[in-house]
Design a protein around this nucleic acid. Sequence first.
DNA 1: GCGGTTTAGCAAACCGGTTTAGCGGACCGT
DNA 2: ACGGTCCGCTAAACCGGTTTGCTAAACCGC
Lengths: 358, 358
Amino acid sequence: MEQATRRTTIADVAKAAGVSKAAVSFAFNTPERLSADTVSRIRDIATTLDYRPDPVARMLAQRRTWTIGLLTPQGLDVIFTNPYFGEFSAGVATAAEAAGMAIQFISPLHGSLTRAVDRASVDGVIAVGLGAEHPEVGQIRRSGIPFVVVDSTALRDEPGVTVDDEGGAALAARHLLELGHRRFLVIGIEPPSASDRAEPTGVTARRLGGYRAALAPAGIELDDEAIVVGPASLEGGIEALRRAWARGSRPTAVLAMSDAMAIGAMRAARELGLRVPRDLSIVGFDDLDLAQYTDPPLTTVHQPIRRKGQEAVRLLLAGGRHRDEEPSEQQLLATRLVVRGSTARASSGPEGVVDDGR
Amino acid sequence: MEQATRRTTIADVAKAAGVSKAAVSFAFNTPERLSADTVSRIRDIATTLDYRPDPVARMLAQRRTWTIGLLTPQGLDVIFTNPYFGEFSAGVATAAEAAGMAIQFISPLHGSLTRAVDRASVDGVIAVGLGAEHPEVGQIRRSGIPFVVVDSTALRDEPGVTVDDEGGAALAARHLLELGHRRFLVIGIEPPSASDRAEPTGVTARRLGGYRAALAPAGIELDDEAIVVGPASLEGGIEALRRAWARGSRPTAVLAMSDAMAIGAMRAARELGLRVPRDLSIVGFDDLDLAQYTDPPLTTVHQPIRRKGQEAVRLLLAGGRHRDEEPSEQQLLATRLVVRGSTARASSGPEGVVDDGR
DNA sequence: GCGGTTTAGCAAACCGGTTTAGCGGACCGT
DNA sequence: ACGGTCCGCTAAACCGGTTTGCTAAACCGC
């Protein structure tokens, strides 16, 4: 992978046009500093010579890369195949593009996120799903690059955008409660790497808090038996419900912390001979595009994923300007429950029984 | 978004260590050129000063960006939310990462792919789904950057990786034929931009060719009425089947050119009161992860999407070395039919009738 | 003690742009 | 005719690394 022929540089154009390098630069960047016909002469020659300014050289000189980094603790293979990240990235990408910025994914490189951050040349970073315990946060802050955090409430001193996870989760739980459900299974998201486990402020904890807050008034509490976790994927959801079932859980309703897991749970339920929602109600979280096309369509908590990405970009771009003056801006976006077909009135089993005792 | 404090440069480290800039550079890149203790001294000082070489400066000096570009005619918002691209990108990413390369998405910028190519600083390009008629191909070739094409057979003179679309499509059609189907609807992929329309060598054309080749021996030919196209998305599939139905098509089997469209078609079929596969058989193309989890599980043509991405990277990385000597390497990957639950024996209507005449 | 080879490190050129300070000439009013 | 201002452009410094001679000292055998 070697360059075949040397590409035309600004010096070539300058020589051909009989002007200085500066003039060529001006012709493209600040044409008002040159006379109109000099500009057009230079531009003509440039097109003839097929001159395209080297982006790297430009980055170095301007000390701007016109790139914003998307930092995630997950590897690229899971990022790209995860619909949630897909929608989020789409939001980031459109907003970034509108601002003339490119986006660069920063994911653990050979297992090290730190190394990946070093290699990345970006003007700003959007860190998604990173807790305070991640050393990379300090690394970035020290490097002086502006950044905003997404989906992590731990870093109150940094600008960030979050979603009302507690509220949304509570909505979901209350909905099931109203349908008469009393035996619940929570399918939770397992953090990507071991070091992230038991993070007290992560998405998982916040949603769990929401479930609990809604269930408590009804006298229901979620013990460890009522919670099962796994990777936030379809397979993870299948696995989770299977495991719970195998160890004796007999819920009438499932609170899944992601749509992917909810869909997986629907699938697993079918395998177990359960009809959704007749025998088992399932509510997800996220409201992916896909959620409306499942069979039955998935009842779920909607969160504005794309907008989250766009807001993150907005915050990042606005952030630097009044850096030290104002307190860092925190954005909290609303969630809402979307009732579709995967939830129904509880029918089987005696109501009020929280645990079927195996 | 301004840099707060100037980061430590190689000159700072050199001064602090009492050596030349070159020595610092050597200490990291070619430590064998320095004495062992000088190396460790420089490295210690570098860590103390929290020195991290500026990637951009390095790129400029080495004239390598350690980045490969992923060129697509679609916008980033569709790329990121499309499961096919997701899996493909995941393949590219893992292979690239293994080779120490980052990946950069190159998508139309303000509608212009040319502009996007100019802005991108990459060592090589993987162009996916680009036909010969795209001027960008010429642009890249002229710029001397190595590139490989994916999913386009038009550019035989460039290295590329393709999948046996004809063969796979034929398999799908024959499968339905064997189940007794005679009335077919093809749901095709519509090219992303108007200029790409009617590309004679695109994926759509190849798969259509496969269908036709398999159907012809049975005396069935696909006229325009039997073909409907739309964007390669779930919504596109829904829309397509609805449109076909509305204009009077009454097929017993659907040949969809992508799984997303097939899933959409399943959804639309249900809305129309058709049971899949009892009243309507559907076969997709791609074999996305998702395909095994639909209800019923989707019969589809499997293609090795991830591997396609990996092979593209391999070809790109190997490409430059023996550039002019060998003929450009072409890689053709096999497809196979995966029979699941969305296809069944044709039951309704008189067999042998190709068109129900409204 | 001498020429010849290594070794360790330096100075400077270079990558390809941007940006600042400044210069010569045209134009202006008086 | 003269000093001042404006216009159009240039020369050179700069961004932060890498890489290419090259040199001075150390090492070598004899």
